[in-house]
């Protein structure tokens, strides 16, 4: 019950922060030099039409009023306003592109957790051996190399030289398959496993490029957490008490090491979507990050507020989940933000 109450308070707090964020971005948008409606319509459209669109989009009203209408639209109808760039509702656009990218990020998040914990554990257990050194060199390069450099390197190696993976793009989805918008999930829901295999095949390099920096960082954190715990008194005691090596590593060492690992993991996962945009551009994945990029570059007012809000929501949700995870792992810590 206590956890539930704390979580509720946390969620409320987060909602307020997100509200403030959206207002902030909203105020930014209003001071865009030039007229976004005019620049999206081109110089040929008559002034009356422009005025009509401006008033439809509430651009002729004062900032607080416009903001109020926008919030009202979201709360009552899930309406994020109209995009001046795609000329569709921003909510529709988000619903179309977000699931694709979430799928990409989900696979990436799983890969980061699995590989990070695996490599970190190997590195810590065989501390200072050759394998530890190899892993540490890898983590070093992983952390300092930008994701796009990995993407290009993998493209050159796996696509152009070895011809193992496609250079970019995704398989075409038959229209009757499209349900959620997430490619792999839609293929699975339609029961088309061959297509699912194709989707996975085309997603392999994007997921790998997106994950490798995270894997490297996660490995570092997990290794140092495990190394720290190996020297702790309770491990020496467990050893003396005759606990076997396997149980020692997997039960007594792993669990406490997960606390720092998990905290860092949260930040990594939360930033995946933001990092995905170059990967999506390079591999022509056409997901949410690429959509965000186009609305930002085209100064599309409602588009920008919409995508930043989505980024904020995802960031917040991941953080709340991670806090809950950590407080389950470590009963000493309560949920954060309980001042």
């Amino acid at each position: 019950m206590k956890i539930l109450k704390k979580t509720l308070r946390r969620v409320l707090h987060t909602l307020l922060v997100l509200l403030a964020l959206s207002f902030l971005i909203f105020s930014f948008i209003r001071i865009i030099p030039g007229d976004p409606v005019r620049s999206s319509m081109g110089p040929m459209v008559p002034e009356e039409t422009i005025q009509k669109i401006r008033s439809e989009l509430n651009f002729d009203k004062p900032l607080p009023v416009q903001y109020f209408y926008w919030i009202k639209g979201i709360v009552t109808a899930g309406d994020f306003g109209m995009s001046l760039f795609t000329h569709r509702s921003v909510g529709e656009d988000i619903a179309r592109y977000l699931p694709r990218s979430l799928e990409l990020c989900l696979y990436s998040a799983l890969l980061i957790l699995m590989m990070g914990v695996l490599l970190g554990t190997i590195s810590a257990v065989f501390k200072n051996s050759w394998i530890d050194n190899v892993i540490r060199v890898f983590t070093y390069f992983g952390v300092v190399t930008p994701p796009y450099a990995f993407a290009i390197f993998f493209m050159l190696l796996f696509s152009y030289s070895l011809r193992l993976f496609p250079i970019g793009g995704v398989p075409v989805m038959p229209a009757e398959y499209v349900r959620t918008g997430a490619l792999g999930l839609d293929a699975l829901l339609a029961g088309d496993f061959a297509l699912y295999g194709k989707v996975m095949h085309s997603m392999f390099l994007p997921v790998l490029s997106l994950s490798i920096g995270g894997i490297a960082y996660q490995t570092r954190i997990h290794r140092s957490a495990m190394v720290e715990n190996i020297n702790a008194d309770y491990i020496a005691f467990a050893r003396v008490a005759g606990v076997g090596n396997g149980k020692l590593i997997f039960k007594h060492l792993m669990k406490p090491s997960f606390i720092p690992t998990f905290t860092v993991y949260g930040l990594q996962v939360a930033s995946l979507l933001g990092n995905a945009f170059i990967i999506e551009v390079l591999f022509r994945y056409q997901g949410f990050s690429q959509y965000s990029l186009s609305v930002i570059m085209n100064k599309d007012p409602y588009g920008i507020v919409g995508v930043t809000l989505i980024f904020g929501i995802i960031f917040a949700v991941v953080n709340v989940l991670i806090d809950m995870g950590v407080s389950v792992l470590d009963p000493r810590i309560g949920l954060r933000g309980e001042a």
Partner: peptide, 9 residues
């Protein structure tokens, strides 16, 4: 508020 979205975005 400023920490609530990815820095790059």
């Amino acid at each position: 508020i400023f920490m609530s979205i990815p820095p790059l975005i």
